[in-house]
């Protein structure tokens, strides 16, 4: 099946046919059942193309990409963490833990009557470094340190109310980061926590950038 208009059906379908030709083609379509059928098939091809699903590769390409770009994949990191504890290491850790527990108990028992164990201080608990270590990332840490330096240098140029707001917000973000990191320590694969941590880290970077720009601009 082929006639003068067959080759123009795709252009017609896409609305790319000039007005005059479109009118002529539409008149032809009313008379030509073959062209009508072909047009319908072409319409279905386009619909099928637009409905195709994307499918991931059958093998995970990330490890190879990670090697190329010089980062360690999450899976490899987990595997390495798992493999890093050999039986002798676990035995040694158990002995150390036992000694630590025994030592703590002995110290508590020796404490004079009435004395209470010290309450937690206002300083935050140390952040675990084997999970959620965005701050351990050298480039991120360098970016934060650099912005903090700029902010510290320009701090005197900002009015006290502005400084107070910046410090308050940084404190809130830092607390959110610490909370996310602590939660991730217990559940490293939790995607929500990972996303939340990423958001907070970005927020900190953005606030520091804005504050540093503000401090730099007030010359």
């Amino acid at each position: 099946m082929s006639d003068t208009w067959t080759n123009r059906l795709s252009e017609y379908l896409d609305g790319e046919l000039p007005e005059s030709e479109r009118a002529t083609l539409e008149a032809h379509l009313r008379a030509c059942a073959d062209c009508r059928a072909t047009l319908e098939q072409l319409r279905r091809v386009v619909a099928r193309a637009q409905a195709l699903d994307d499918t991931p590769p059958t093998t995970d390409l990330w490890p190879a990409i990670a090697r190329h770009v010089g980062v360690v994949s999450l899976d490899a990191r987990r595997a390495r963490r798992r493999l890093s504890f050999t039986v002798p290491q676990l035995a040694a850790a158990a002995v150390a833990l036992t000694l630590l527990s025994a030592g703590s108990a002995w110290l508590l028992l020796r404490r004079p009557a009435g004395a209470r164990p010290s309450q937690s201080t206002t300083t935050p608990s140390p952040i675990l470094t084997n999970v959620g270590t965005y701050e351990a990332n050298p480039r991120y840490a360098a970016a934060v340190a650099s912005l903090e330096r700029v902010l510290a240098q320009g701090r005197s140029r900002l009015d006290t109310a502005t400084v107070r707001v910046i410090e308050k917000n940084l404190g809130i973000i830092d607390r959110a980061i610490r909370d996310a990191q602590s939660a991730l320590a217990a559940d490293p694969a939790n995607s929500y926590l990972n996303l939340h941590l990423a958001q907070e880290m970005r927020r900190k970077l953005e606030l520091l950038r804005q504050a540093a720009a503000l401090a730099g601009a007030r010359t």
């Binding site: 980062v71 996303l195 990423a198």
Partner: peptide, 28 residues
């Protein structure tokens, strides 16, 4: 957006998340 910013600062984990979000479309 956060992951892009982090990945641009060298964060491999953020880039891995971006990879996993987009690999199907790019591979297809």
């Amino acid at each position: 957006t956060a992951d892009v910013a982090l990945a641009a600062s060298g964060d491999g984990r953020a880039f891995e998340r971006l990879y996993r979000s987009h690999v199907a479309r790019i591979h297809s």
